[in-house]
Design a protein around this nucleic acid. Structure first.
Length: 222
DNA sequence: AGCACA
């Protein structure tokens, strides 16, 4: 059913309602940021809004791509259903400078909060101040010859098997993910062939599972 | 099933 006109926000439903909000948002962010920059992920657990989420992309093209690619994607044991959002997200209006509180139309629970918290540039600087391990030999593995097993590094602490499965699952030839007990930061992902592992590798190289952690993918040592 | 953002 071709219903709603393209929108840079994707509306998702049929999500697993048992997943807690922070985890849900993180996983959605990880899963969808492969299509392009994301402005916001909105998920509410209110009776009306549970099981649904909004992914706000910077570009409509990214949203369209996501819509086509992720329709029916198995996510926490349910198939996600995607549509374009019906209206413009606040994150978009804010970016365009057209954001209005629409006096009265929307619920105003209490005090009018006019000023949003300003991101201090100190915070922003701290966020980017993460040392990047360029040039200190940390990426010697880049030279390993292709094989069917990928080696993931720089994984954030909250990584779990399901998140990695969701990411790598979508590539042909996927076999399994192996986590290492006692190490949250590395994992192995196996494919049927080295061509298939190479394709997944280039697609997901630098993928941000969380906004601050870009994972690194190399081929495993044989 | 359910289209919000505090």
């Amino acid at each position: 059913m071709m219903d709603i006109r393209p929108n840079q926000t994707i509306y998702i439903n049929n999500l697993n309602e048992k997943v807690k909000k922070p985890e849900l948002k993180e996983s959605l962010y990880g899963l969808f940021s492969q299509f392009g920059p994301i402005l916001d992920v909105v998920a509410l657990k209110t009776p009306k809004m549970r099981g649904q989420a909004f992914i706000v992309f910077k570009e409509i093209g990214a949203a369209t791509n996501a819509l086509r690619s992720m329709q029916g994607f198995p996510f926490y044991d349910k198939q996600m259903r995607l549509q374009y959002g019906k209206s413009e997200s606040d994150a978009v209006s804010k970016m365009k400078g057209t954001f209005r509180q629409e006096g009265g139309k929307r619920k105003d629970p209490s005090a009018p909060k006019k000023a949003k918290k300003a991101k201090t540039s100190a915070t922003a600087a701290a966020a980017t101040a993460k040392p990047s391990e360029d040039g200190d030999g940390a990426d010697e593995a880049a030279d390993l010859p292709p094989n069917q097993i990928l080696f993931l590094t720089s994984l954030p602490e909250e990584t779990n098997e399901m998140m990695l499965q969701m990411l790598f699952n979508q590539f042909p030839g996927f076999k399994e993910v192996r986590l290492i007990p006692g190490r949250h930061d590395i994992a192995f992902v196996e494919f049927d062939t080295d061509a298939q592992s190479a394709a997944a590798r280039s697609a997901l190289q630098g993928f941000k599972i969380t906004p601050t952690h870009a994972m690194r993918i190399s081929f495993a040592k044989k």
